[in-house]
Design a protein around this nucleic acid. Structure first.
Length: 558
RNA sequence: UGGGGUAUCGCCAAGUUGGUAAGGCACGGGAUUCUGAAUCCCGCAUUCGUUGGUUCGAGUCCAGCUACCCCAGCCA
C-alpha cells in the first residue's frame, strides 16, 4: 500500500525545486485547491486535490481550499458543503485556510479601479454579440472597440455606475486593454467584469457586477500568497493574461504566484465532465451525485472505495502534460489492494444450493472458529450444521477436468470447516437440482491435528438455519460502454444498459451482523463488498466494488 | 502561411548538464495457498511519432515533416 509518499517525481515538483533552489519564495511554497461550487467533486478533482495538498505537504508548505465562486448563476451552498466533506474525507486538511473568491470582491473591485487608473482597463458598451464579432477569429485579428479610447475619468465613473446597478445585465463590461491583434485570443481585451443582477449564495445582493475567472484568479492567488497556482492544461493560453494582470498591478515578478498546468484525468469508460454528470443527476438517470455508479468522490465513497485507495491511485497515475486515458483497471487495482489488506472476510452465498451432510447428526451444531483476515488476525465463530448452502456455481454435475470445486463423488473443503464429499445429487421431477447429499470427514476439521489433508478446492458456505439475509447491490459502475464522442443526446444513449442497479439478496453468515455498519468486508470468491453506511438500517447492505479476478470464471469463458 | 500544447512498452509514467531506456497497471510462466484471491519468484521497449543532421556517442542538441489535444463564454 502506498504510504502516500508522493516521492514520484513530476514536472511540477521539478519546477518547485528549481524555484526553491533559486531562493524564490523564501517563505516556503503555498498552493491552493480552487473548485467552483457548481457540482460535486469527482475522481478528476481528487487528482488535483492530491497534487496540491501533496505538494504542500512534501515541501513543508501550505495548501488552501478556495471556492472560486465568481459566477452566482451556477453556484450553490449545497456544493460548497459537499466539497468540504469530500476533501476532508480524502484525508486532507486546509486547517483554518478556507477562503472564497467572493471574500475578495471588495479588494478585487479596488484592483479593477487601479487597473483603470493605470489606463489598462476600460468600460465597453458593446453587446455580447458585438464583442464576439470584434474579437476576430482564430486566424483573423480582432478590431478595437470604439470605447477603448475612453478617458480614465470616464471609465472610473462608468465602472462605479456599473457597481451601483445603474445598468442592465449585459449592457456593459469592463475589459482589460491589451491587444486586439494578439494571436492569442485570450489577450484580445478580455472581459474582466460583467453585470449580473443575480443573488450570490454568499454575498446576496451586495453586488451586481462580478469578476471573471481570468481576473479573479491571479489576484486571489496573489492575495493569499499562493506561490504555485497549479491548474489544468486548458488554461495554458490564459497564463499570459495571468502574468499580465499581476505585472500591470505591480506585483513583483520574483515573488508573485506562478501558474503551472498539468493534464486532467481521464479514465476509460468513465464520464468525467461535470456537465454530463449533472445531466445524469438532473435527468434522473442516477439517484443523485452520490449514486454508487457515479465517479464522484461521494459515489465512490458509497461504493466502498477508501480514501487511501483513491490517494494511492492519484499517486500512481502521475502528473504530466500529455492527455492520457488511464485504464479503469488501475483504479480497481487500488481498491482491491487496499481492501485485501484491510477488509475482514465473511462468507456469503448469492445463489444458494442446499447441501445436507448426511453423516452429520441432525441435532448437532458447532461453532467453528474462523479467521477474520488471513494475516491480520481476528477471529469469530461461525455456526455449522447438517444443512448448509453453497453457491450454485460451486457445483457442477458434469464438470470439466480442471474444475476444482464440488462435483459428484468429488471432495472439497468447506472454508473454516470440514472436507465434504458429494455422494448424491437430488433432483425434482423437472430434473432441476434441488439439493446435494454429502458426507463429511470428521477428522478434517480446520485447525485440527488431522486437518492437513489437501483437497483442491475450498468453498464458502452458510448454515441454512442461521443464514441472514442481506441486501446486495451489484453495480456495473461504468457508465459508458465504450469510448466514443458523444453529443448530449448520444451521451445518454451510450450509457451502458447494464449499469443498472441490480439488487439481490445474499445469505450471509450471522457473524457479519455483529459488526457495525461501515465495516468493510470481503466476500469469499464473490469479490469485495462493503456495508453501505447510508442504507444499513436493520439490514446489511453490500455494494460490490469489484469482483475478484477469478481464473475459473476466465476458464469458463473459453 | 492564427496561437498554445503533447508525442517513451497494450495503459499510465520516470528519464538530471548528450553516455548507451526506472517503476506501476495489464499480460505470460513457475512456486505456494483452507479465498482458482493474495503472496513469492521469473519474463515482458536493441528502442523512445517520423525523416534527416551534429557527435566517438542522442529519448535527451539542431532542422523538417506527421498525428493528436486546447482556444473565437459577459463559464471556470
Amino acid at each position: 500500500m502506498a504510504e502516500n509518499t508522493t516521492t514520484a517525481s513530476n514536472f511540477v515538483q521539478n519546477a518547485i525545486d528549481e524555484d526553491l533552489k533559486n531562493g524564490k519564495y523564501g517563505e516556503g511554497i503555498h498552493t491552493r485547491f480552487p473548485p467552483e461550487p457548481n457540482g460535486y467533486l469527482h475522481i478528476g478533482h481528487a487528482k488535483s486535490i492530491c497534487l496540491n495538498f501533496g505538494l504542500a505537504k512534501n515541501n513543508a508548505g501550505l495548501c488552501n481550499l478556495r471556492f472560486d465562486d465568481t459566477n452566482p448563476t451556477k453556484e450553490d451552498v449545497e456544493y460548497v458543503d459537499s466539497i468540504q466533506e469530500d476533501v476532508k474525507w480524502l484525508g486532507f486538511s486546509w486547517d483554518d485556510r478556507m477562503f472564497y473568491a467572493s471574500d475578495y470582491f471588495e479588494q478585487l473591485y479596488a484592483y479593477a479601479v487601479e487597473l483603470i487608473k493605470r489606463g489598462k482597463a476600460y468600460v465597453c458598451d458593446l453587446s455580447a454579440e458585438e464583442i464576439r464579432q470584434y474579437r476576430g477569429t482564430l486566424t483573423e485579428p480582432g478590431r478595437e472597440c470604439p470605447d477603448r479610447s475612453r478617458t480614465v475619468e470616464e471609465n472610473l465613473a462608468l465602472f462605479e455606475q456599473m457597481r451601483k446597478g445603474d445598468f442592465a445585465d449585459g449592457s456593459r463590461v469592463l475589459r482589460a486593454k491589451i491587444d486586439m491583434t494578439s494571436p492569442n485570443i485570450v489577450m484580445r481585451d478580455p472581459v474582466i467584469y460583467r453585470i449580473s443582477h443575480t443573488v450570490h449564495h454568499r454575498t446576496g445582493d451586495a453586488w451586481c457586477i462580478y469578476p471573471m475567472y481570468d481576473f479573479a484568479h491571479p489576484l486571489s492567488d496573489a492575495i493569499e500568497g499562493i506561490t504555485h497556482s497549479v491548474c489544468t492544461l486548458e488554461f495554458e493560453d490564459h497564463r499570459p493574461l495571468y502574468d499580465w494582470l499581476l505585472e500591470s498591478l505591480g506585483f513583483a515578478s520574483d515573488s508573485r504566484p506562478r501558474q503551472i498546468e498539468f493534464a486532467r484525468l481521464n479514465i476509460t469508460n468513465t464520464v468525467m465532465s461535470k456537465r454530463k454528470l449533472r445531466q445524469l443527476v438532473e435527468g434522473g438517470y442516477v439517484s443523485g451525485w452520490d449514486d454508487p455508479r457515479m465517479p464522484t468522490i461521494s459515489g465512490l465513497r458509497r461504493r466502498g472505495y477508501t480514501p487511501e485507495s483513491i490517494r494511492d491511485f492519484c499517486d500512481r497515475i502521475g502528473i504530466a502534460k500529455s492527455n492520457s486515458l488511464v485504464d479503469v483497471g488501475m483504479l480497481e487495482h487500488c481498491v482491491r489492494e487496499d481492501l485485501n489488506e484491510s477488509a475482514d472476510r465473511i462468507m456469503a452465498v448469492l445463489h444458494p444450493l442446499k447441501i445436507v451432510i448426511t453423516n452429520y447428526p441432525e441435532d448437532k451444531e458447532e461453532n467453528l472458529l474462523a479467521e477474520n483476515h488471513p494475516y491480520r488476525g481476528g477471529q469469530r465463530y461461525v455456526p455449522f450444521a447438517r444443512e448448509l448452502y453453497i453457491e450454485q456455481d460451486d457445483f457442477m454435475e458434469e464438470a470439466p477436468k480442471k474444475f476444482f470445486r464440488l462435483k459428484p463423488g468429488g471432495e472439497v473443503r468447506l472454508k473454516h470447516a470440514y472436507i465434504i464429499k458429494c455422494e448424491e445429487v437430488i433432483k425434482d421431477e423437472a430434473g432441476q437440482i434441488v439439493e446435494l447429499h454429502c458426507t463429511y470427514d470428521p477428522d478434517s476439521k480446520s485447525g485440527g491435528l488431522t486437518s492437513g489433508r489437501k483437497v483442491k478446492g475450498t468453498l464458502h458456505w452458510v448454515a441454512a438455519k442461521y443464514a441472514l439475509t442481506a441486501e446486495v447491490r451489484l453495480y456495473d459502475y461504468l457508465l459508458k460502454t465504450e469510448e466514443q464522442e458523444e453529443e448530449p443526446a448520444d451521451f445518454l444513449a451510450a450509457l451502458n444498459p447494464e449499469s443498472l442497479e441490480v439488487i439481490e439478496n445474499a445469505l450471509i453468515e450471522p457473524s457479519a451482523a455483529w459488526t457495525a455498519a461501515g465495516t468493510r468486508y470481503q466476500f469469499l470468491r464473490q469479490g469485495y463488498f462493503c456495508v453501505d453506511k447510508d442504507s444499513a438500517k436493520g439490514q446489511l447492505v453490500f455494494n460490490r466494488i469489484v469482483g475478484l479476478r477469478d481464473s475459473w470464471a476466465k476458464a469458463k469463458k473459453e
